[in-house]
């Protein structure tokens, strides 16, 4: 039972608590719309030697009549959708559960079950998306390396740099993942018995402290990387060649 002080108002907070969920909802919403459009469009995803990260690895099969992006995007999207950080972000900004601390949630239902029942209990599969996203990440690194291999030989274009930064940022995002931190050492009880895993856990913990930062910059950058390839492929801009 709560305390009967008349704190039945939405909140007694006086600061702009609504700004953060609003920004989060806007950026996540914009990414959602952009990525859906690009994934479904099935065109302008390749501009030699650059392949858009939304379409990598590129699987072109006769039996699949839809966009090849749909065959692989479930992995990184599932990875983000079940990510502990994004869960906080969208539970707050989309589900308003709660929108901010000490602000009433959208529903104060007394049968609340959180992540202990369907559908949110499925968040527990996060580690499997981590495995799947790691496989995709290997391909993205391959694409980043191939992005230096032009028809006229090895070189460096703006796209090569963009795809390399993209791979680095996505790697940082994966290395800072909570499930990764658990798998490399967090699941141990006796660290002194496993010095290597203790060190790995220490490194994963250091990355983990910036997980939110990596989550945002890698999200925005992967969209920018795709946009760059799209603009090149459509002929709206031309690549800048440094070497």
């Amino acid at each position: 039972m709560s305390n009967g002080t008349g704190q039945n108002v939405l909140t007694l907070r006086k600061d702009a608590w609504w700004v953060e969920p609003l920004i989060t909802a806007t950026v996540l919403g914009a990414f959602g719309i952009y990525s859906t459009w690009r994934a479904l469009s099935n065109e302008f995803y390749f501009s030699d030697p650059y392949l858009s990260p939304f379409y990598s690895p590129l699987i072109l099969a006769n039996w699949w009549p839809f966009s090849p992006a749909l065959l692989i995007l479930w992995a990184p999207l599932g990875f983000r959708a079940t990510c502990y950080y994004y869960r906080k972000a969208y539970y707050r900004s989309f589900f308003l559960s709660p929108p901010a601390c000490a602000v009433n949630p959208l529903r104060s239902n007394k049968d609340y079950k959180g992540e202990s029942s369907f559908p949110f209990i499925l968040q527990n599969v996060h580690r499997f998306f981590f495995y799947a996203a790691t496989i995709i990440l290997i391909f993205l690194w391959y694409d980043a390396i191939i992005a230096f291999n032009f028809r006229d030989g090895i070189g460096i274009g703006l796209g090569s740099i963009v795809l390399t930064i993209n791979a680095i940022l996505l790697t940082l995002y994966s290395l800072s993942c909570h499930s990764f931190r658990h798998l490399v050492g967090g699941n141990l009880d006796v660290f002194s018995g496993c010095p290597t895993r203790f060190r790995l856990w220490g490194a994963a913990s250091a990355f983990n402290e910036r997980h939110m930062l990596y989550a945002w910059i890698s999200l925005v950058f992967v969209a920018l990387a795709d946009l760059y390839v799209f603009l090149l492929a459509k002929g709206i801009i031309t690549d800048v060649r440094f070497i």
């Binding site: 869960r87 906080k88 601390c101 000490a102 959180g114 209990i121």
Partner: peptide, 13 residues
């Protein structure tokens, strides 16, 4: 009831 927590982090805040 650890599954009830939806990690919205107000406790940490």
């Amino acid at each position: 009831g650890v599954g009830y927590c939806n990690i919205t982090k107000c406790c940490t805040e």
